[in-house]
Design a protein around this nucleic acid. Structure first.
Length: 274
DNA sequence: CACGAGACCTGTTCGC
DNA sequence: TGCGAACAGGTCTCGT
């Protein structure tokens, strides 16, 4: 679930609150419980527990697929990987079996990091750049221009799909949004990056921005047991639509493997490179 | 540098 | 019905 639009949605809901939950901003951490050791990437469990105690949540943000809690003197970073989620609950509720870290708050609520597959990670650092420093540009930010994309594609010779999934090239795209962006741009996922001309690169740039904005406007994509209130899954054109018709041309969508990831294409709209 | 395989994990769905 | 295989929104490390 968690690609850029989903992390953005989680970040916004935690920051602004919902009818059922108050916003997290201004809350003070009064306790914590680490239920799966490896969830905490840095520092040690003891230091983590000591350092967060009494710190207030000043802001909540996102960078790429990372969610950031800005505390008084530290930043807590969460990477949700495949199955992570952050949920606000009332203290005293029996914790879900998949909770990996619980932060107790001064208003009787708690923030729980729920992560079925245990791939997610949490860091507590004074300078978030230690963790975020190697990320590529923010796709919806002002420094991701058509020139930057074209230049980046040209300076490498890589299959376009794995390149777009590379977070040091561009921060935030995942398997869903890459497949959707490539379909909208009519680019085959195996196309070698420096084979795209300026027109193709610009089309890809627009498709990336569009698909991410659409995803955010729909509150992200939700699948079965991982529900977040998003409904972009109803607007996907190729992702997990193998055997259904391409909305552009009516050809049946195919599933192939690219870079060991499931990949969905329209074989008519997206022509394979020679 | 670019790519594939395997690892890290649990849960659901698919095929026989 | 049962049971193993395949598969899932991500990323890291290693070998070629």
């Amino acid at each position: 679930m968690p690609e850029l639009p989903e992390v953005e949605t989680i970040s916004r809901v935690l920051r602004e609150g919902r009818p059922t939950n108050p916003p997290l901003l201004g809350r003070v951490i009064v306790g914590s419980d680490l239920l799966w050791q490896r969830t905490l990437a840095y520092p040690t469990p003891e230091e983590f527990a000591d350092r967060i105690m009494g710190q207030m949540i000043g802001d909540i943000g996102r960078r790429g697929k990372y969610l950031l809690l800005r505390l008084d003197t530290d930043t807590m970073l969460f990477h949700l990987r495949m199955s992570g989620d952050l949920v606000l609950e009332t203290a005293g509720e029996p914790p879900d079996v998949h909770h990996r870290l619980i932060l107790d708050l001064d208003n009787g609520n708690r923030l729980a990091f729920n992560d079925t597959r245990k791939f997610g990670r949490v860091w507590l650092v004074s300078d978030p750049q230690e963790i975020l420093g190697s990320l590529g540009p923010e796709p919806l930010g002002t420094d991701f221009t058509t020139e930057v994309l074209f230049g980046g594609l040209n300076s490498r010779r890589r299959q376009i799909k794995p390149l777009l999934l590379d977070q040091s090239f561009l921060a935030g795209m995942g398997n869903i949004y890459v497949d959707e962006a490539l379909h909208r741009a009519k680019i085959h996922p195996l196309t070698i990056s420096n084979q795209l001309d300026r027109e193709g690169s610009d089309q890809l740039w627009r498709s990336i921005r569009q698909v991410l904005e659409d995803g955010i406007n729909r509150n992200g994509t939700s699948f079965d047991w991982v529900y977040r209130g998003g409904d972009f899954q109803n607007y996907l054109r190729v992702y997990q639509r193998t055997g259904e018709v391409c909305p552009e041309c009516g050809t049946l969508i195919e599933r192939i493997i690219v870079g060991q990831r499931s990949t969905h294409i329209c074989p008519t709209c997206q022509i394979a490179p020679v």
